[in-house]
């Protein structure tokens, strides 16, 4: 679906991604993990096409992309109108509100919803674009456990419907619950990638062992 070949992204003298090569294929969710500042958000923005690589290349097959940012911005209109705004074609507002459990909030101003509800609405809005691949940047950061579970349930459902999920998280528990494939980034470099069970049970690199043990903090 997406290939990154020897990709570097730099902002001035700061390297945000350093010679990264990775292939994202259809299938269960790909979860990007790593400490803060590792390059997870940069990789998602690059994959989405919001950033251009400084060096290297990004190759995409013909897919429809959508993204949910870590702090999604709700348009100043109702929850339903936010979804309608993003709709790619037929109006699936009711279906999508039901999917994320927000039928009751259809007519409420989107900005008045709780953080958890806004995150679910952002998911519904992204799905309104009928994507084949959906990028999620720390979709449950700063949510309470109940809201986290609600968002994770939606992610699972969406993935089961065949939409490729590529998401970042710094929550190892979430990565274990959702990941099919894990990509560990550290200090702008790809350190290790592999299927989730083998990554967590038998990490190949020292960084991965330390990250899983909670010792790799920066």
């Amino acid at each position: 679906m997406i290939r990154f070949d020897d990709v570097t992204v730099a902002a001035g003298s700061v390297t945000l991604l350093d010679r990264l090569s990775l292939a994202i294929e259809p299938g269960p969710p790909t979860v990007l993990i790593g400490p803060n500042g590792a390059g997870k958000t940069t990789l998602l923005r690059l994959a989405m096409g919001l950033l251009a690589p400084t060096a290297g290349s990004v190759t995409r097959t013909d897919e429809r992309r959508a993204i949910v940012f870590q702090r999604p911005t709700m348009l100043r209109r109702s929850a339903a109108a936010n979804i309608r705004y993003a709709s790619a074609g037929s109006d699936r507002t009711r279906e999508l509100l039901a999917l994320v459990g927000l039928e009751h909030a259809a007519d409420r101003p989107a900005r008045r919803l709780s953080a958890g509800e806004q995150q679910r609405l952002a998911l519904a809005r992204a799905l309104a674009r009928d994507p084949t691949i959906l990028f999620l940047d720390e979709p449950t950061a700063s949510l309470d456990p109940g809201s986290t579970k609600a968002v994770e349930d939606v992610i699972r459902t969406v993935s089961e419907r065949g939409i490729k999920i590529v998401m970042s998280t710094h929550d190892l528990g979430e990565a274990r619950r959702l990941a099919g494939e894990v990509v560990l980034l550290h200090r702008a470099r790809l350190v290790e990638t592999g299927f989730a069970p083998s990554f967590f049970d038998a990490p190949r690199t020292e960084e991965a062992r330390r990250f899983i043990a909670g010792e790799l903090l920066v």
Partner: peptide, 10 residues
């Protein structure tokens, strides 16, 4: 500034 990322992504 607030909407740029969302509208660009859409």
């Amino acid at each position: 500034l607030e909407y740029r990322d969302e509208l660009t992504a859409m």
